[in-house]
């Protein structure tokens, strides 16, 4: 990281993070289709993580080699775990609705 980020940027990100958190809590109790609520909450969750990584951890100022190493190592593994386990869990006879 070489460039200096203005202090104001950190606090603007903070406001957005709080707004996203609040919207997740409101969405959870909203009378909407469950699939829509879950999708929205997961999307907001990923957006929050991306913002913290990019602005607070300064990944947006790092080389692509570091960004890709961090993001691919974690998200590809997590996604592989998810897509291998979820179908198995749902297919079990005692699985819930």
């Amino acid at each position: 990281m070489e460039r200096i980020t203005p202090y104001r940027t950190y606090w603007l990100v903070w406001i957005v993070l709080l707004a996203l958190t609040l919207s997740m809590i409101v969405a959870e109790g909203a009378p909407l289709a469950r699939g829509l609520v879950v999708s929205f909450i997961l999307l907001a969750m990923l957006l929050k993580v991306t913002m913290i990584g990019a602005w607070y951890m300064h990944l947006r100022l790092e080389r692509a080699a570091l960004i890709l190493s961090v993001v691919l190592a974690t998200f590809v593994t997590a996604a592989a775990l998810f897509f291998l386990l979820v179908p198995e869990a749902i297919s079990l006879p005692q699985a819930g609705p």
Binding site: L81, F82, L85, V86, E88, A89, I90, Q94, A95, G96
Partner: peptide, 11 residues
């Protein structure tokens, strides 16, 4: 992931 598995597999 293990939490998700158990959660989805629980009745």
């Amino acid at each position: 992931a293990s939490y998700g598995f158990v959660r989805l597999a629980s009745p």
